[in-house]
């Protein structure tokens, strides 16, 4: 659990900055009851905290770790950490934001540890091969065509949604995590940089390459152009 200690300052300040998103209105009554119950040591408040937040937290852990058992483990670790460190939760922050940072940070730590043990997975794509190529004079080697299907058409098909998720999972972890945090979890560049221990510039470069690689992969695998 020692790995959690260093993030409390981070999650406190970031939680606070996200709390005013709903026009500065007071916390929802359920959230207030949970917070008051947690501070009073009420077991039922902890159970409500778990039941209200476990779904999205498990989803983000699963996105990052790609493994149910690891996601379960990290979510459990995250809730226990939140229980032990609830004193550090600031009342002006959203519980959802605070818990999200705890679980994301724990999942990233797990990912770093498992990567150093196991190396890269076999079905991961080479991002550099999926980036657009240019001649010396700056002209593209391949002239891009418009996509023949709209996002709405694509996203309504369950099979396509599953294919898209699988293609995201094929990106190398250092690109995949940036894409998940920026484009799915919608964290900003500085939050992402802090969680991943990278510079903001590196986050931007990786996000751009991840999107470019995924764009190419989607176009090719889903046959999105008339020439496909």
């Amino acid at each position: 659990m020692a790995g959690f200690r260093g993030i409390w300052a981070l999650v406190s300040t970031q939680g606070a900055s996200s709390a005013s998103g709903a026009g500065g209105q007071s916390l929802a009554s359920e959230e207030r009851e949970i917070i008051e119950g947690m501070r009073a040591g009420d077991d039922r408040a902890f159970e409500r905290l778990v039941r209200v937040h476990i779904g999205p937290l498990h989803a983000v852990a699963l996105r990052l770790l790609k493994n149910d058992a690891d996601a379960d483990d990290i979510v459990q670790e995250g809730f226990l950490s939140a229980f032990r460190n609830f004193d550090s939760f600031r009342g002006d922050a959203r519980l959802k934001t605070w818990l999200h940072r705890i679980v994301v940070n724990a999942a990233l730590q797990r990912l770093r540890r498992s990567k150093s043990r196991a190396g890269q997975q076999a079905d991961v794509v080479d991002v550099t091969e999926l980036l657009p190529r240019f001649a010396d004079n700056g002209y593209p080697e391949h002239f891009h065509q418009p996509w023949v299907q709209t996002i709405e058409e694509l996203a309504t098909r369950a099979e396509t949604r599953e294919q898209v998720r699988q293609m995201i999972d094929k990106l190398p972890d250092n690109y995949r995590t940036v894409l998940i945090l920026r484009d799915i979890e919608e964290l900003d560049t500085s939050e992402t940089a802090e969680l991943l221990e990278l510079s903001p510039g590196t986050v931007k470069v990786r996000l751009h390459r991840a999107r470019q690689a995924l764009r190419n992969l989607l176009e090719r695998e889903l046959e999105l152009t008339a020439n496909a």
């Binding site: 996509w147 996002i151 949604r161 999107r211 989607l218």
Partner: peptide, 19 residues
């Protein structure tokens, strides 16, 4: 356009995650 659509498609396909 494809770059923008990629971002939109990622969001649309992961919103109802684990479906």
């Amino acid at each position: 356009d494809g770059y923008r659509d990629t971002i939109a498609l990622v969001r649309a396909c992961t919103r109802a995650d684990a479906a």
